[in-house]
Measured scan of single mutants.
Amino acid sequence: MASQGTKRSYEQMETDGERQNATEIRASVGKMIGGIGRFYIQMCTELKLSDYEGRLIQNSLTIERMVLSAFDERRNKYLEEHPSAGKDPKKTGGPIYRRVNGKWMRELILYDKEEIRRIWRQANNGDDATAGLTHMMIWHSNLNDATYQRTRALVRTGMDPRMCSLMQGSTLPRRSGAAGAAVKGVGTMVMELVRMIKRGINDRNFWRGENGRKTRIAYERMCNILKGKFQTAAQKAMMDQVRESRNPGNAEFEDLTFLARSALILRGSVAHKSCLPACVYGPAVASGYDFEREGYSLVGIDPFRLLQNSQVYSLIRPNENPAHKSQLVWMACHSAAFEDLRVLSFIKGTKVLPRGKLSTRGVQIASNENMETMESSTLELRSRYWAIRTRSGGNTNQQRASAGQISIQPTFSVQRNLPFDRTTIMAAFNGNTEGRTSDMRTEIIRMMESARPEDVSFQGRGVFELSDEKAASPIVPSFDMSNEGSYFFGDNAEEYDN
């Protein structure tokens, strides 16, 4: 783990906690998980779902989305002020799938948001429990990260689609708070800032007046979040320049895209947490497990152990491969979309394939898809080993990566060399080191050039047997250095459309 220093740990961010010791953190995270579980059980009762239907990941996603929508204050306010045809701002819903006479049927349900809020609060001892809501947002974000390569979004903001390893959390809503900021990748933060800068260039009043003052505060806050992700002084200094700019424009845009590229080699610290679907927490609570009393951590053995003992089902389209669908969801559960496939294969105990080789589309089923041909199958979400999630980018030494994705962002704290394609990355730096950030740029390029592919990161860190909950005997895996390590390699994943 990167030293926490003055930073709060993510469990504290996750639970809005002030400084807590490890036991208190485990208890408050457990409380959050228990609340999600209780809410899910109650919703299944309301909807009269069978046990099997309640364990269907598509039903879980609909129920999670309903509660997130019920608590989305800004959108609710907007919907009330701008009524649109056929949208009731006070209601929320989605597809629920039921097994009827041996076939899967889709039923569109509609609930009062007020009623959903009441059920959620009741499951969370009367609190709004925003930490639990954020947790579900991060699960949705991790699922998107594993399912889609955001080529269009990258290109629109002047970045290269091969930089997708920097895009963790790119679909997280803005209201996801400190826990959300911690899991956002460098590219995601750059993209958010670039969008602001572009608006400022096109709209003279963007930075002016009372609204402009708020915009400015948001801009500086985002700059500080991004600065905190960088691990070298030169990158941090460049972020200070971007933040202090009187009138952010093209120079800042250039600096930010430069920094994003540099992060492929001088990786930023991005938190990883295993956020599971509500249909995993519900049955665990129903079986009598007391998360608050037992304590829970999002970055240790607990999620692995929970998945070892969970039964989750998914709808499967006619030509999809259930094992591939399982891999997709497994990666999402562990926030591992940008991790090295060699490491993932070792931990999972079966070969993890790149996205383009998977015969599976996303987990969600569109409303126009034919239910007649839908089957369902068990998702295999178990693992051979477990490993500690990392909050750091690993040290800054790398190795060759593949054509589709030119770097990785480690999820697990496991000893290995970190793949990246130096030639491709360095070719993108057209040696432009003039301007006010020239000395920093020169320094950053120097550090990137001296990074050695064969150097090892996370020295001495290994994986653990599932029986080793105290992480007492690390097993340090050895990897084939020459092997392909990137998930979005030469990829044809669908595009994420909101």
Rank of each mutant, 00 (worst) to 15 (best):
R422V: 15
N124D: 11
R55S: 08
D497L: 15
N125E: 12
N397F: 02
M448W: 03
T437L: 09
Q405F: 02
N432Y: 13
D439T: 02
R389A: 02
Q42P: 08
R213L: 09
M13W: 12
S392I: 07
A284Y: 04
A179W: 11
M238P: 01
E369K: 11
E18V: 14
V312E: 08
L259R: 04
N430F: 00
A146W: 10
E114W: 07
E465M: 13
Q308L: 09
T442M: 06
F412L: 12
G158T: 02
T257N: 15
V194D: 10
R400H: 12
E292H: 14
A284P: 07
E372Q: 11
A336Q: 06
Y313P: 07
R342M: 03
P354A: 13
N144P: 00
I265V: 15
A403R: 02
E443W: 05
E434S: 15
R106Q: 05
V100L: 15
V329N: 01
S467G: 11
V186S: 03
A428W: 04
G393I: 01
C279H: 00
Q12Y: 08
Y97V: 00
N224V: 00
R221E: 08
L328N: 01
A387K: 02
S482T: 13
I388G: 13
A27S: 08
E372V: 13
E454S: 06
D72F: 07
I25W: 02
E320R: 00
S287W: 01
R175E: 02
Y281H: 09
N417F: 05
T433L: 14
E369W: 10
T23W: 13
A22H: 12
A337R: 00
S376Q: 02
A179F: 01
S69G: 09
F253H: 11
D290G: 11
K91D: 04
N492K: 14
N124P: 00
Q415W: 03
E114L: 04
E114V: 13
Q311D: 06
T396Q: 06
N397S: 10
R99T: 10
F39H: 04
L166F: 00
E64W: 07
M447R: 02
L68N: 05
R195W: 05
P277M: 08
A237K: 06
R389W: 12
K48T: 14
N368I: 09
A182T: 14
N321Y: 14
T188L: 05
M440A: 01
K325P: 01
L328D: 00
R384M: 15
P303C: 07
I217R: 07
V343N: 03
G158Q: 08
M163I: 13
V280W: 01
V456D: 07
E18Y: 08
A427I: 11
L266F: 10
G102Q: 01
F304G: 04
V343K: 03
R55P: 01
Q409V: 15
A366R: 04
R26H: 06
D497E: 11
P173F: 04
E320D: 15
C279G: 11
R26W: 02
K351Y: 09
A271C: 08
S335D: 00
K348W: 05
T257L: 04
R174S: 11
S269T: 12
S438Y: 10
H82M: 02
Q241K: 14
K470A: 07
M222T: 11
S269Q: 15
S60F: 06
E115F: 03
Q405D: 00
S377H: 04
F71V: 09
I109K: 03
N250I: 04
N101G: 15
A451V: 13
S486V: 01
D421M: 02
R152Q: 09
W330S: 05
G282D: 00
N124I: 09
N370E: 03
S478F: 11
E64M: 09
E449D: 12
L79C: 10
N432M: 10
Y52N: 15
G169M: 04
T157M: 14
T147M: 06
M13P: 00
D127S: 12
I57M: 13
A428L: 00
Y52S: 10
Y281V: 09
K48W: 04
R342H: 14
S407L: 00
E484L: 09
A22T: 12
A271V: 02
I425A: 04
Q168V: 05
T232P: 04
D203G: 09
E454C: 07
G295E: 13
W207M: 10
V463S: 05
G102V: 11
N483W: 11
S50I: 14
G435Y: 04
D160F: 03
F429C: 09
G209K: 11
G94Y: 06
A284K: 10
L315S: 05
M426A: 13
S60I: 10
R175G: 08
N492S: 15
F346T: 15
M32E: 03
E294H: 15
T373M: 14
F479T: 14
H272W: 07
I475C: 14
A387W: 05
I41W: 14
L418A: 05
M66T: 09
